[in-house]
């Protein structure tokens, strides 16, 4: 599966409020469903998402079974320096996924 779709403005003015969007593919299996044979389908979800801006954490979320497949986050931050946004998703069964995007301050 494609890792993730990230949207960060490539350029911004210092002090601009910018929107960050992060979409990732994951089945988000709740752990409550059963197969036709009656066996429980084991839980397989993303449990945490974090975004760091030049190493400083600016957004974090814990995820739970009620969250739909392919979770999508949208949030805002203030563009104050050129650099890198790093995204990290951690989940069940050792799931780990990272992505990054660069921004230039004009």
């Amino acid at each position: 599966m494609a890792a993730a779709l990230i949207s960060v403005p490539k350029q911004a003015k210092r002090g601009d409020i910018i929107e960050i969007k992060a979409l990732t593919s994951h089945i988000m299996e709740t752990g409550y469903r059963r197969t036709a044979a009656g066996d429980l389908v084991p839980r397989d979800i993303i449990t945490s998402f974090a975004c760091r801006y030049n190493g400083r954490e600016i957004f974090r979320a814990d995820l739970f079974p009620a969250i739909a497949a392919n979770p999508f986050f949208s949030f805002f931050t203030v563009a104050n320096e050129s650099g890198k946004f790093e995204f990290e998703w951690i989940g069940d069964n050792g799931y780990s996924n990272t992505a990054s995007a660069a921004i230039t301050i004009l």
Binding site: A2, L5, L23, F72
Partner: peptide
Amino acid sequence: DDDTANPGMLWVLDGEA
């Protein structure tokens, strides 16, 4: 309408690969 919010685009990216 937003290609970065449309989960279908994840499949498109996989298709491209």
